[in-house]
Amino acid sequence: MHTEIPALMIIDMQKGMADASAGPRNNPDAEGNIAALLDAWRRADARVVHVRHISRTPGSPFWPGQPGVEFQERLAPLPGEHVVEKNVPDAFIHSGLERWLHARGITQLVIVGVSTNNSVEATARTAGNLGFHTQVVSDATFAFDKVDYSGTKRSADEVHAMSLANLEGEYAVITDTQRLLSI
């Protein structure tokens, strides 16, 4: 049994993700659940990592200098909380994140944020492959509607559920906010 408090990793909770133009999504309470977890981690003086996507596509809401690239206010980092900037879905790629975690002896991660089937899944897969004990919080992550490869429109709930199924057991343990807050 691991006794260390895992680092809380909050992925891409930027203003652009809260914009209606992002499309239909699931888990409307995800931001509240992330905020509750963030508050618990801060009260425990545990490690928090904020991940911010910086787009390489001009005109993207996540392009530097655009309002969408900024953190959502209630989830913004405090001084001393680590910020990782990425420009691909996986927060470990070209970011120094793995080195930062190892230098602090962190072996466990709790991942929240958006989107479940993109940055959350990519980061959780790498975390699991690198040997981190990883948990993904099902109700503190969310996805958007997406058309699958065969042309069938999938609801955000379907996309989210499939992504969690892809991760469960092999790369991460899937949990929920209440379970984490009751520990």
Score class of each variant (00 low, 15 high):
L38N: 11
N27W: 11
F62I: 10
L78S: 13
D29A: 15
V110P: 05
L37S: 00
E81W: 11
E81I: 10
K153C: 07
R43C: 05
T126L: 01
R42W: 11
G59D: 12
F71I: 00
V88N: 00
T126N: 03
P79N: 11
G128C: 02
W63S: 03
T123M: 02
A124P: 01
R25G: 10
V48R: 05
S150L: 12
A44T: 01
N26W: 08
H53D: 08
R43S: 06
D139F: 01
V147P: 01
E31C: 05
T57D: 14
G23S: 06
K86T: 02
D148C: 09
N87I: 03
S150N: 12
G128F: 06
I106A: 03
S95C: 07
D148R: 05
A40V: 06
V88Y: 07
G131M: 10
S95Q: 08
V114T: 12
A156F: 07
F92C: 07
A140C: 04
W100C: 02
A36R: 15
I111E: 06
V114W: 12
E98Q: 10
E70V: 02
N117Q: 13
S95W: 03
V147Q: 13
D29K: 13
S150R: 15
A140W: 06
E121K: 12
H50R: 06
Q108A: 15
T141I: 01
H53K: 08
I93T: 13
I111A: 04
F142R: 13
T126S: 13
A44H: 10
A35S: 14
S60Q: 03
H102G: 02
P64E: 09
L78F: 15
W41F: 07
S155H: 13
G96S: 05
A122L: 04
A22W: 14
N27M: 12
V110Q: 05
G59N: 13
W63Y: 14
D45S: 14
H50M: 04
N26S: 03
K86A: 01
L75N: 04
A44D: 15
V114I: 15
N117A: 15
H53S: 07
G65V: 03
S115N: 12
A36Q: 12
H160Q: 03
V137R: 10
W63Q: 11
I106G: 01
G96I: 08
Q72V: 15
L101M: 09
R47L: 02
Q66H: 09
R104S: 06
G131S: 08
S21R: 14
N118R: 10
A36Y: 10
Q108K: 10
G96H: 00
T134Q: 03
I106F: 02
G151M: 12
V83Q: 05
N26Y: 00
P28M: 10
E121Y: 09
A156G: 09
A91C: 02
H160N: 07
T152I: 15
A140T: 01
